[in-house]
């Protein structure tokens, strides 16, 4: 149910973090351009532009409902944020939604990493009949808009009695074509074939070889895949909205409930938007660097 996520045809050399790093050291930055004030100015504008909506959201969320009716806009936060936050949590099942989002995102991320590594290892390092066409098939599925099967998928979930349950959101996202492809690409260059041959010669079973050789080597790519899957499922709306309903929502589903109401109170709506963004902002502070290099290495589109 996730949007497909192919890889960019980036120069193969750039794909490996190590080569990228090496080249960067020898020729840091592009064309030895020394950025002037204009470049810094523009970048500041871009970054500020990216943060402004979040700031605005917090700003409005920290005032009361009359704030937007005033003739001049406030540029400084008011003291109402916690009161609004309390009302938000009173209005929608906020904590439950947060827990649900954490459960869904973590479970799917762990599962995608595990199954993708397993499949990626098979495609990258094991010889078996049909591996070529099967890999092509996997890649091709990334271009299939599976979201459009939403009606029957809903019926399947209904038949299983899963509507309204997190299982209905988790199960379809347990493994992705993108994940398989990503791990295949990475493991291909990360594990020397000799290592696997050696392990097999030692009489290691396939699964032990996977465990002792592949898993340790897969760690950097697995971490990035984890992050992207986590963000993807955290931000996902369409399917959870349809199958979960308002009773047992994930965070985005709970959030949209704040908007439509007998009257739109933007200070509450935007308090909710701020609250829902905070967890991922925290994640971003710690893991943003990995996301950046993940995108640049694989040019992921999740």
């Amino acid at each position: 149910m996730t949007t497909s996520a192919p890889l960019a045809p980036v120069d193969p050399e750039a794909k490996s973090g190590r080569t990228l790093g090496r080249r960067r050291r020898s020729a840091p930055g592009g064309q030895n351009r020394r950025p002037g004030f204009i470049v810094y100015g523009c970048l500041v504008a871009v970054v500020v532009g990216g943060m402004f909506p979040l700031w605005w959201s917090f700003l409005i969320g920290s005032h009361d409902s009359t704030i937007l009716s005033r003739t001049s806009f406030p540029w400084w936060p008011g003291g109402n944020f916690l009161a609004n936050a309390a009302t938000v949590m009173d209005t929608v099942p906020f904590w439950r939604a947060t827990m649900n989002s954490i459960i869904v995102s973590t479970t799917t991320a762990v599962s995608v990493v595990f199954f993708s590594t397993l499949a990626g290892y098979a495609f990258a390092k094991l010889r078996f009949k049909g591996s070529g066409p099967l890999l092509v098939f996997v890649i091709a599925t990334m271009a299939v808009p599976t979201q459009l099967g939403v009606v029957p998928l809903y019926q399947v979930m209904a038949a299983l009695g899963w509507t309204g349950e997190l299982t209905a959101v988790i199960v379809p996202a347990l493994v992705t074509a993108f994940g398989v492809f990503w791990m295949t690409q990475y493991l291909r260059q990360a594990i020397p074939d000799e290592l696997i041959e050696a392990a097999t010669m030692d009489g290691c079973s396939m699964i032990r070889t996977f465990y002792h050789v592949c898993l340790p080597a897969a760690r950097p790519a697995a971490a990035m895949l984890f992050l992207f899957t986590f963000v993807l499922n955290w931000t996902n709306f369409f399917w959870p909205f349809i199958v979960l309903g308002p009773q047992n929502p994930t965070l985005p589903v709970a959030l949209q409930q704040l908007q439509a109401a007998h009257f739109v109170d933007y200070s509450l709506v935007l308090t909710g938007a701020t609250l829902a963004t905070v967890p991922l902002l925290i994640l971003f502070v710690f893991a943003g660097r990995q996301l950046v290099s993940g995108i640049m290495q694989g040019a992921v589109k999740a």
């Binding site: 209005t91 929608v92 099942p93 979930m157 209904a158 009695g161 509507t163 309204g164 349809i242 309903g245 308002p246 009773q247 949209q256 409930q257 704040l258 908007q259 439509a260 109401a261 007998h262």
Partner: peptide
């Protein structure tokens, strides 16, 4: 469970009836 609008509550109840489960 407090649903935002009557329309969404209606959709959600229809869903539950259709699925045979999920209603409060």
């Amino acid at each position: 469970n407090k649903v935002d609008t009557a329309e969404n509550a209606r959709d959600s109840l229809r869903n539950s009836l259709g699925a045979g489960s999920g209603a409060s």
